[in-house]
Nucleic acid binder design. Structure first.
Lengths: 155, 155
DNA sequence: CGCAACTTAGTTGTGCACAACTAAAATGCC
DNA sequence: GGCATTTTAGTTGTGCACAACTAAGTTGCG
């Protein structure tokens, strides 16, 4: 048994592995839940963002979800192909692409309305526990990202 | 502002998105840290498992890391190609493949010894915070996995 | 104006994850 | 022994993530 968890090369001790495992477990649950809507989890996240606020630029979606165009472009193409979104070049700035919901895309929101409750139940946390864990993870994400920005290899 | 976070179709409120973001942030940090060792994060996890206990069956690695052969087989092939591990069929059970460290693979452990501290520092948590968050995530993973096992679509 | 610098999407290539499937070996039951 | 069942790795195909790059449009500065 290591005396210092923060410096052990042991799988079980590491928070990062817990994070990796938890994230995959949640995604696996989303997979079975979203199967009915024919959405993947990242696609669901894009739909969430659009249900919250329609007509977003690709750039905007990238900022909100922390994804680059290398991930978003093909994903959005698939959502367009399945008829949930439209993509059109902005007239006043031909570089930008505006993503908006189709009728089908907007309608899908109702069918998705029960999902947050399912996921919440599965996590077995009350509202306070959810908020607290979420806050902790947000803090951790920010801390790790800040550290990475400042990180210089072998320094 | 929604009155019930557990049932809102809002991106910012959802723990699962926090989890997804945190997991990707940590992986991104590992990417720059592991660049020096020419390992990806999942490859590093396999090496961790082998440093802890050498000579593991593929099946065993799959259990420990929660990965199936569809993920592990090509990953192990890459580790073999880069000279860090060996793979040989078990003599007494030709179905099984035993994965073991090469000299280079074993030696790499020393170069990796500083990594847990870097990651721990980046997370900005003391030992108690790390242990607590880890325990919370483990509980969450188990709860979500149990729920998924029992989940019947539209039920 | 002219052109370099920047911004925005998209493409290409690599490596996970995972579902669905295959192949081969071991097990167990008659 | 014979054969269905199970176990174990591996293969194939899809969809993220992300680095590196390209293409096209916009901005800003001389």
């Amino acid at each position: 048994m290591p005396t210092d968890n923060t410096a052990s090369l042991c799988l079980d001790d590491q928070l990062c592995f817990g994070l990796y495992a938890a994230s995959r477990a949640v995604t696996a649950l989303y997979r079975v839940v979203l199967d009915d809507l024919d959405l993947t989890y990242p696609q669901y996240l894009v739909m969430l963002a659009l249900w919250e606020k329609d007509e977003r630029l690709v750039k905007e979606l990238g900022t909100v979800l922390n994804l680059d165009s290398g991930t978003l472009s093909p994903l959005l193409k698939r959502l367009e192909k399945s008829g949930l979104i439209r993509r059109d070049r902005q007239a006043d700035d031909e570089r930008s692409v505006r993503v908006s919901l189709t009728e089908d895309g907007a309608r899908l929101r109702e069918r998705a309305s029960g999902i947050p409750k399912i996921i919440g139940d599965a996590m077995g946390l009350d509202a306070a526990g959810l908020a607290r864990t979420r806050a902790e993870l947000d803090r951790l994400t920010e801390s790790v990202n800040a550290y990475r920005q400042a990180y210089v290899p072998a320094g």
